[in-house]
Every structure is written in structure tokens, then in C-alpha cells.
């Protein structure tokens, strides 16, 4: 057993606590009487922050070799462009106001 493995998770604890703090802020904001649209935008921004931290430090993207990082960028752009295909349906639904339960 190497000495370095003694405290393997200690270096990740700051990110871990920040992620939990962001989540608790989200819960706090949920009870602040925002409108649906504003709350969705606020919560999504915080979720994107969490995702960034997770990607960079939990999934080690920040430490990966540049080749992997650069290869994933065009793939991600392609994927986002493909998602563009669902926007037209979304606009149609906006005017239909589908019924809820």
C-alpha cells in the first residue's frame, strides 16, 4: 500500500462540499417564490456550474491530455447541433399549451 493512497478522497472534498452547497442553494431558491421561468433559468445556471465542477474535477477533464479535450469539443458541438432538430416541435407545443393532469 502506498502512502499516497491513505487520504485518496481528501483532495476531492472541497469540490464535494461546493457541489452540496450549490445544491442547497438551489433548494433555498426554490422556496423564494420565483416565477417558473425565472426559477428554471436560475436553477439551470447553478446546475451548469455543478456540471462544470463535476466534469473538470470528478471526471478529471481538467487533467486530461489536450488531445482528448480537443477531440470532445467538435463531438459536443455536433451533438448540440443535432439537438436542434427538436426545437421546431418545441415551438409548436408552445402554442398548443398541452394539458396537464
Amino acid at each position: 500500500m502506498s502512502a499516497a493512497s491513505g487520504n485518496v478522497i481528501r483532495k476531492y472534498l472541497p469540490v464535494y462540499f461546493v457541489l452540496i452547497a450549490i445544491f442547497l442553494v438551489e433548494v433555498f431558491l426554490a422556496f423564494r417564490n420565483f416565477s417558473s421561468g425565472s426559477l428554471v433559468v436560475l436553477l439551470l445556471l447553478l446546475a451548469l456550474g455543478s456540471a462544470f465542477l463535476g466534469l473538470m474535477y470528478f471526471m478529471h477533464l481538467a487533467e486530461e491530455r489536450r488531445g482528448l479535450f480537443l477531440t470532445l469539443i467538435p463531438v459536443t458541438i455536433f451533438v448540440l447541433l443535432m439537438m436542434n432538430m427538436i426545437w421546431s416541435d418545441s415551438v409548436r407545443l408552445l402554442h398548443m399549451h398541452p394539458p396537464s393532469q
Binding site: A30, N33, L44, L46, A47, A51, M59
Partner: peptide, 25 residues
């Protein structure tokens, strides 16, 4: 581990959108 962290990250989006917007005005 990469897969598992991804599952965790997805949950970061599911909670705000599905659960927390329940309490919006």
C-alpha cells in the same frame, strides 16, 4: 468511474428541473 460521475451529473439537472420547479409561483 466516468460513467458513474456522469449519472451523478445528470441528477444535478433532474433535481432542479423536475423537483424544485414544483415550488415556483
Amino acid at each position: 468511474g466516468l460513467y458513474w460521475h456522469f449519472v451523478d451529473l445528470v441528477w444535478m439537472f433532474v433535481v432542479p428541473l423536475v423537483y424544485l420547479t414544483n415550488f415556483a409561483r
